[in-house]
């Protein structure tokens, strides 16, 4: 049996009469970068929100390691080692880098925030994932897109995790910033971190992922190893009218 870190089986989610997920199933191998691609409205972001505990599915199961769950809360997901970097990065623009990295888990000395310790530890985390931010006290609203992405990833990896979920990690970035963000993800893979990346940028996905799942109309219609397919084939799958179980 393959060494899977995450397996999602038959996940369903309806928003009123809209069926966002209609039995999506996928798996992520330990230590791999797995991407989920699909057109707008295919259910990619809903899937990430379910895996990170932000919304509850209507059915299906989520297996993390050996344990299986019907749904997760944000707290559950964090305890299980699921770390999430949201599409909007979920940063407080008024706070600086280390305050954002420790948001919700601040280090304290008695009742007071221990800013010095947080700054030191945040610097070490950023160094570990190769993110360069010259001034850790600068509000993150003033940082570049790549640096902000770095802060969001550093926050997700502040405590040891098993899998990192990234929702459109380069959606709002320029070419240079996307390049630095991709380098961060490669560096994390070298450190053994499993990653599940949601993206609609097929070329970027080909550049970084080991496995690719294609989502269409709330289902994962294909799962392929990157080496065994081409961007053209993927594009055809995304746009195909009929479900094709490729795996």
């Amino acid at each position: 049996m393959e060494d899977l870190i995450l397996r999602v089986t038959d996940i369903r989610k309806d928003y009123g009469h809209i069926q966002a997920l209609q039995g999506a199933s996928l798996s992520v191998k330990r230590g791999s970068i797995t991407a989920v691609v699909g057109d707008n409205g295919s259910g990619k972001s809903t899937l990430i929100k379910i895996l990170s505990g932000n919304i509850k599915p209507d059915g299906g199961s989520i297996q993390v390691g050996q344990e299986s769950y019907g749904s997760l809360s944000i707290k559950n997901a964090m305890e299980l080692g699921i770390r999430t970097v949201y599409q909007d990065l979920s940063l407080d623009n008024y706070k600086n880098s280390f305050e954002n990295i420790f948001l919700g888990a601040e280090l304290t000395r008695g009742p007071f925030l221990d800013r010095r310790a947080m700054k030191e530890e945040a610097g070490a985390i950023l160094e570990r994932i190769n993110v360069a931010i010259p001034d850790l006290e600068e509000p993150v609203g003033n940082l570049s897109g790549g640096q902000r992405q770095g802060v969001a990833i550093a926050r997700a990896l502040r405590t040891p995790g098993k899998i990192l979920l990234l929702d459109e990690p380069t959606a709002a970035m320029g070419i240079h910033e996307s390049h630095s963000a991709m380098n961060i993800l490669r560096s994390l893979k070298e450190q053994g971190m499993s990653q599940l990346i949601i993206s609609h940028n097929i070329h970027q996905v080909f550049d970084i992922a080991d496995y690719i799942w294609v989502m269409r109309l709330g289902r994962c219609i294909a799962g392929v190893a990157t080496a065994d397919t081409t961007p053209q084939q993927l594009q055809e799958l995304i746009l195909s009218r009929e479900n094709q179980e490729v795996q």
Binding site: K75, M78, T84, Y86, S90, D92, A105, R155
Partner: peptide, 12 residues
């Protein structure tokens, strides 16, 4: 005031 969603997603 800055980003309540970020706070919520941090488990606060």
């Amino acid at each position: 005031g800055g980003n309540p969603e970020a706070l919520k997603r941090s488990g606060v």
